[in-house]
Design a binder for these strands. Structure first.
Lengths: 195, 195
DNA sequence: TAGGCCATGTAACCGGTTACATGATTAG
DNA sequence: CTAATCATGTAACCGGTTACATGGCCTA
């Protein structure tokens, strides 16, 4: 899925500007699905307009540059439906935190501790944001997704709290107190690891 | 996080070839964190070798081309530690399914139904794969991550089963059989849907 | 008066995918 | 006889990010 589809999806819910689309995809209700920057959104919107998938009206403002408020067209809705209906959908969870956890034995305890802290903070921030989205949601779909996120992320956070000590216990030695080579026994794992 | 780091992480657990690294990142224990293709892995490995972060030995085989079995060096471990320690980590969940759910009102019921089906199948496949990873895990970190995945994805799946009717009820009209207004009994769910 | 917000946009760059080339071996 | 698996690698391409340019308004 690409920015084009994201723009159409956001515009299918209500008219907005490129500037606001980016906000939606950064701090707003769409932020935990896709990320997008101006450099991607503005060209996409231009292309979309050329293809007749969206139209825009100029709203003059004093001082600020005129806002280009985009609306989706029937053709745009068709394309949105098509791209969402085609089964290219694969949900991807890219987690650096989990990669750190995987390497726990190789890493000093403080690194893991910091990663857990970041992960917890990130989850809490997400929860707060989604709570906010739910409160102001005007579409059933958005509300459902917000509940989904709240429920799953909440569970995630609880699980992390419950099990963080286990992964910390596996950690290597702290970098600060010197002989950070954990245990010579690690040295020999390569022999049979290939399996 | 990039492929370079991923390669180092995988090599930090055990020696392997570029070919196997790709398998790890496609069907194996690393598949639900990052994706990687040959076109990215082989150049990364070459660069890593030039930088002294990994070494390799050639293992001749008859018929097949010789395997280049890579090992991580002390310098490579340092770099891995550094990139995992720096707080650039942001966990990203890219979900086309959730985008479809967000647009539920705009979409025909059959599209949403298909998306739910795909999502459930994907979750079940993940669960099976992770179960497998857990059984054969040789590192505590891997086991912990597998449990994490099993727990969270399991919860996700259960939640989806419990609430799928709610989002289906919100759907628009079926494209084929025209005014297919769903079952009115679904209409009252929103009250207690939270948590 | 410096910086952040509004609001648009462009150009250079880059990391990664796709698709290909090679070639022997084994399974259907 | 075809397709897949093993195993390496390259080159074209592409989607997206980063970093800029512009410029007036508002806040610290």
């Amino acid at each position: 899925m690409n920015i084009r589809t994201l723009c159409l999806a956001i515009l299918s819910a209500s008219d907005t500007t490129g500037y606001d689309i980016r906000k939606h995809a950064t701090d707003g209700p769409y932020s935990y699905f896709i990320d997008a920057s101006y450099g991607a959104i503005y060209p996409a919107l231009n292309k979309l307009e050329g293809d007749g998938c969206v139209t825009f009206r100029l709203e003059a403002q004093d001082g600020k540059p005129a806002r280009k408020v985009y609306s989706i067209t029937e053709k745009g809705r068709d394309e949105l439906l098509n791209s969402l209906a085609s089964p290219h959908a694969k949900d991807i969870f890219k987690s650096e935190f989990l990669l750190i956890a995987m390497c726990a034995e190789q890493l000093p305890r403080d690194v893991i501790e910091a990663a857990i802290k970041r992960r917890i903070e990130h989850l809490e921030a997400s929860l707060t944001m989604i709570e906010n989205v739910r409160e102001t949601a005007e579409h059933e779909g958005v509300r459902w997704v917000a509940n989904y996120g709240l429920n799953c992320l909440g569970h995630d956070l609880r699980h992390l709290h419950n099990t963080k000590n286990e992964i910390l216990a596996v950690a290597g030695t702290d970098r600060d107190n010197d002989n950070a080579v954990p245990d010579p026994s690690y040295r020999s794992f390569t022999a049979d690891a290939a399996e």
